[in-house]
Simulated scan of single mutants.
Amino acid sequence: MFLRLIPPYSHISVQAVTKIAKTAIEASGIDPGNHKCGAHAFRSSLASSMVNDNIPYEAVRKTLGHTDQNAICSYARLDAEQLRGYALPVPEATGTFADFLEGRWSLS
């Protein structure tokens, strides 16, 4: 939770968090390239970390405060290693395709 330093002590705006983040990233010498580097990037990073740590989508959605069940799709990024567990086995090549792979048939 971020609070203002002067009264009234309420939450600071998204714009203020974005400015603080951009200033810190610039001061660090990190080149963000085309990546977002404000408050939205924090949400994306949090959502991605939670999904990659196998936290249920419903918990991630509620943490982000979304009502739409598909809203986290824009934030969450699965890593390649986690996706490997869902890969389908590659079927054995047969027929003309198998002949092509074995060099017994060509496209020309």
Rank of each mutant, 00 (worst) to 15 (best):
residue 20 I to C: 09
residue 31 D to M: 08
residue 89 P to F: 10
residue 32 P to Y: 02
residue 74 S to V: 06
residue 87 A to H: 04
residue 23 T to S: 14
residue 49 S to G: 08
residue 67 T to F: 02
residue 46 L to A: 14
residue 29 G to K: 10
residue 71 A to L: 08
residue 52 N to K: 11
residue 56 P to M: 03
residue 16 A to N: 05
residue 78 L to D: 00
residue 17 V to S: 05
residue 42 F to T: 01
residue 79 D to W: 07
residue 29 G to L: 05
residue 40 H to Y: 15
residue 63 T to I: 07
residue 52 N to S: 08
residue 19 K to A: 08
residue 34 N to Q: 15
residue 66 H to S: 03
residue 70 N to A: 15
residue 67 T to G: 10
residue 80 A to L: 13
residue 92 E to I: 15
residue 94 T to E: 12
residue 64 L to E: 02
residue 52 N to M: 12
residue 21 A to I: 08
residue 20 I to W: 08
residue 57 Y to T: 01
residue 83 L to S: 03
residue 41 A to K: 12
residue 91 P to M: 10
residue 67 T to D: 04
residue 72 I to L: 01
residue 61 R to M: 09
residue 92 E to K: 14
residue 95 G to R: 03
residue 50 M to A: 09
residue 59 A to F: 00
residue 12 I to P: 00
residue 42 F to V: 11
residue 42 F to Y: 05
residue 79 D to I: 14
residue 55 I to S: 10
residue 88 L to H: 11
residue 96 T to N: 15
residue 69 Q to N: 07
residue 24 A to S: 10
residue 78 L to E: 05
residue 45 S to K: 04
residue 94 T to N: 09
residue 17 V to E: 02
residue 43 R to G: 02
residue 77 R to K: 12
residue 27 A to M: 14
residue 41 A to W: 08
residue 91 P to V: 12
residue 35 H to T: 01
residue 54 N to S: 13
residue 95 G to L: 01
residue 44 S to Y: 11
residue 80 A to Q: 12
residue 92 E to P: 04
